[in-house]
């Protein structure tokens, strides 16, 4: 060990003179700088660009650019196809969010109550979250194929059984079962079903995590206080304790279902009769495929406004903590 000291003194060292706080501040700025530049370039600048372009008639490849003020926005709120866009988007969100959230919660509660097989169901229900939505959309399309698909074939097997008491079923047997994706009355609901199928496993996992954080003492205390039925227990303890999880689950499901694109693009192209013409698909079709940049930018801004509104509402809700804590 004696030569260690001599060695460490022998190596000429560059001595760095600076106050440690100064050194840290410099390092901090240097280390954050790349992220800063990229955040600005990739996230902030595009929002500004979209805001500016939404008031022009710009198209890619044309040199001139004219200021059109709010005309693009006026088009959106007056044009019938854009009204259909808003309706389709909102309807899709309104269909998917409650179904996905309640199925997620229901699955979580059922799985938690099991003595055996908890992880088995958890794994199965989580599979759709992992699988490529595009690939699964194509599979669903095949499964829902009017003639070849397993769904209609299975339904047809029910013909001639008491199921025909159900008028809808009887009509299916007589006139053929729905085209699902090809029928404007069913297309959006079918896409919403695929959306729920894909997303509720994610919500289930979040709820399972939320359930583990409910202190079991509370249930003990409740039964001492005379709470007997499972429903009372749920209403008194589980549901309020899951409040923060629910706020988060609702928000993230909303934001994700707002962004539905893969199934629309691959299966319906916004049709039939614009019944599935959701916003992100509209941005893609107008702004990129048809090169109507101004319109696409206006829809982008509208879309961002929706998403921001949801996020801000969530943060408000969490900060207020009305029911929680």
């Amino acid at each position: 060990m004696s030569d260690a000291a001599s060695l460490s003194h022998a190596v000429p060292k560059q001595q760095r003179i600076a106050r440690p706080e100064r050194r840290q501040a410099r390092a901090g700025i240097v280390l954050f700088a790349p992220a800063f530049v990229l955040l600005i370039l990739i996230l902030i600048v595009p929002v500004v660009v979209a805001g500016i372009l939404s008031m022009t008639d710009y198209t890619l490849g044309r040199p001139s650019i004219d200021w059109v003020g709010l005309r693009n926005y006026v088009d959106i709120f007056t044009g019938s196809s854009y009204r259909k866009m808003i309706v389709a988007t909102v309807l899709y969100v309104v269909l998917v969010v409650p179904a996905s959230v309640f199925l997620g919660l229901g699955a979580a509660l059922l799985i938690r109550s099991l003595n055996v097989g908890q992880s088995f169901y958890k794994t199965i229900y989580f599979l759709p979250v992992m699988a490529s939505l595009l690939a699964m959309a194509i599979v669903w399309e095949f499964a829902l194929h009017p003639t070849l698909g397993i769904v209609n074939r299975t339904l047809a097997m029910g013909c001639g059984t008491p199921l025909e008491w159900w008028p809808w079923f009887a009509r299916g047997c007589a006139e053929g079962f729905p085209l699902w994706l090809g029928d404007r009355d069913y297309a959006l609901y079918t896409l919403a079903f695929i959306g729920v199928w894909q997303s509720f496993g994610f919500n289930m996992v979040l709820y399972l995590a939320g359930l583990t954080s409910v202190p079991s003492d509370l249930y003990g205390a409740a039964s001492m206080d005379g709470v007997k039925s499972g429903w009372e227990r749920f209403r008194l303890i589980t549901w309020p304790m899951l409040g923060p999880t629910t706020v988060f689950v609702v928000t993230i499901t909303m934001i994700r279902s707002f962004q539905v694109f893969d199934t629309v693009e691959a299966l319906t192209h916004g049709g039939p009769a614009k019944s599935t013409y959701v916003m992100i698909y509209a941005i893609y079709e107008k702004g990129i495929a048809q090169n109507l940049v101004g319109l696409g930018a206006a829809i982008t801004i509208l879309f961002l406004a929706f998403v921001m509104l949801i996020s801000v509402a969530q943060r408000r809700f969490v900060e207020r903590k009305v029911h929680y804590q």
């Binding site: 990739i42 660009v49 979209a50 372009l53 992100i280 940049v293």
Partner: peptide, 17 residues
Amino acid sequence: FCLLIPVHAIALPLYLM
């Protein structure tokens, strides 16, 4: 703040850039 911006939503301006 950037956490609030979904990259998919700003695809159009990003694509143009």
